[in-house]
Design a protein around this nucleic acid. Structure first.
Lengths: 340, 340
DNA sequence: CTGAAAGCGCTTACAG
DNA sequence: CTGAAAGCGCTTACAG
């Protein structure tokens, strides 16, 4: 159909520059300096004249490396994930890498499929926010020399670098804030913890610390179908001896809970509401929703650094865990007596 | 550093199966049926035994096609873009394609750089939501036989398929709704229209239709720095003979305007507020913000279809324009007398 | 400093 | 139905 005036190749450039493939190849690689200045300019001219772009797939084939990083996200529509991918992209670009981004929609099957594909593309590293527990595949990748970094979620029995939030610290900060603000009974709302280590860590820390602090605590696991109004209603009406607050395990939960608050006509602040993950609209819901913002750019950058360290061989012997601290963003939803 | 027990190759599979490279290659390609059932199973066994995955970069090199689609977005943190990419990904996966996703952060320089890279990766098609006007590069790509689809934004002097919203229809629907609701003076808020054809189209249609309908109209171009409270305040205080409404050109603007409304303590509904693009939180801002939702999945799917049509050679002679209709989502922000 | 040659893992006419 | 051979565009020892 199309004219397909196919792109110029190394050979054509060499011919036009009156030199060999080898020299042209060197010109576009790390050995450019070995070439005479005059040869360099001859090649440069020929290349621009022909609009030559090295074929990275060919280069990848022959040891040069694909310069491709795989990124596998569980939910690309989650603002947190998008923000991290943005950070990853920034860092990757700085180092001359491009990204193959795949989304699994939290489906382990799609995850398997994507992992197969990524392997096929000879990626030089993989950053994965796992949907399931693809230990076998990842183990195989790792074993075949592909640097790996787990993002936010761990995978059982897989001993590789993990980058994410300091979940224990986050829960501690949340509880500390809520208690300071006068809330003494806390409902912790989360998506089902199975398969997502982050959810488990946060939930576990919550239970542990709530007990240690003598806080009246309760847990609500959100089903993906209908919201659980009963539990929430009961909690709001009988929070115990003192005011209650709802702590949301992540942005999705915060969204769901905010909806529920509105539908049940629960006053923000009077019943506290706080969430892990910062979202565009948290400041817009009167009187503002208090959050723990994750440093998403830092997380993305750290993930790329880990990968590069592994590529350089300058990696630690044992896997690293980067636990980033969240930033507390205080708003009206955790103030008992709204001032108006 | 790592053992790099490198992956199995075609040759090893052939050896183990006691056959030739050719047959193994056929097995993994579209010609599998030409092989004897017995040969097929022998190869299948050998392949799984070795955990063989075809090297797609090698395949890409030798005519087989890279099975890679490029996606270039102007702002990956915009929920609209993310939703469309999600749709693209779904459709691409169905057809066995993976995505190289690049983000330009609305920077024409990054766009140039990414385009060069994408070309290097031998993508089989490109979906681009342009940041600048990269006509030359795109022209070259098109000329070298790479199917192209413009997403949302057109590029001047570039005659290729365009997928996006029916901007004229959207504006018409918005104006119709606002007028019906009793607003007679409308402030149209937009980001700077330069370089983004969508913004221009919407703005132009707004001006045109406002005049035709005899609506008192005004325009506010948002600067990226500080919000323009003066214009908004003046508009709210002197909307003319009858109530005024603000129409936001896209999701970013809706966000900015909602902030401004709150900071200036403007009551939603009393002064209308409506936006193109549906966002998670539009239903959460009391009394809800009326929107025109874009069918993002459809748009993503359509983009992939166009690409595939071009690849098949079954494309129209002249470029196609798919203008998708928005869906009106009515909420309290465009009701003059809130009922409570 | 420069180049001829082998080879990366695959596909595809072309023969048989 | 199957396979030997050439070649995709590049890199990298190895010689000169």
């Amino acid at each position: 159909m199309s004219a397909a005036s196919s792109r110029a190749t190394l050979i054509e450039v060499a011919k036009l520059a009156g030199t060999s493939k080898t020299s042209v190849s060197r010109f576009f690689g790390p050995e450019r300096e070995r070439l005479t200045p005059s040869l360099q300019t001859r090649i440069a001219n020929a290349a621009t004249a022909l609009g030559y772009q090295p074929n990275l797939m060919a280069r990848g084939l022959k040891g040069g490396g694909s310069r491709l990083l795989g990124v596998l996200v569980a939910d690309i529509r989650n603002p947190f994930s998008v923000a991290v991918v943005h950070g990853i992209e920034q860092a990757a670009r700085t180092h001359g890498y491009s990204l193959i981004v795949c989304n699994t929609d939290n489906d382990p099957e799609q995850e398997q499929q994507h992992l197969r594909l990524l392997k096929s593309y000879q990626i030089e590293g993989l950053i994965i926010n796992a949907a399931g527990q693809p230990e076998a595949q990842l183990q195989a990748l790792k074993h075949s020399g592909v640097p790996l970094v787990l993002l936010d979620r761990e995978v059982r029995q897989l001993d590789v670098d993990v980058i994410g939030l300091d979940n224990a610290l986050a829960i501690d900060m949340a509880l500390d804030h809520l208690v300071r603000q006068g809330y003494r009974s806390i409902l912790y709302a989360s998506e089902p913890p199975a398969y997502a280590s982050t959810r488990q860590e946060r939930l576990q820390r919550f239970n542990q610390q709530a007990e240690r602090l003598g806080i009246k605590s309760q847990t609500l696991i959100l089903s993906s179908s209908a919201p659980d109004f009963e539990t929430l209603t009961a909690f709001v009406e009988h929070p115990g001896s003192s005011p209650g607050a709802v702590l949301c395990a992540n942005g999705n939960v915060t969204l769901a809970m905010t909806r529920s608050f509105q539908q049940l006509d629960i006053t923000l602040g009077q019943t506290g509401l706080m969430g892990i993950d910062e979202l565009d609209w948290c400041e817009l819901i009167t009187p503002g929703i208090t959050t723990l913002a994750q440093p998403t750019d830092d997380i993305g950058h750290a993930a790329v650094s880990c990968l590069l360290n592994q590529l350089n061989g300058s990696a630690q012997a044992s896997p690293v865990r980067y636990r980033h601290a969240p930033r507390l963003q205080i708003r009206g939803s955790t103030t008992l007596v709204p001032n108006f």
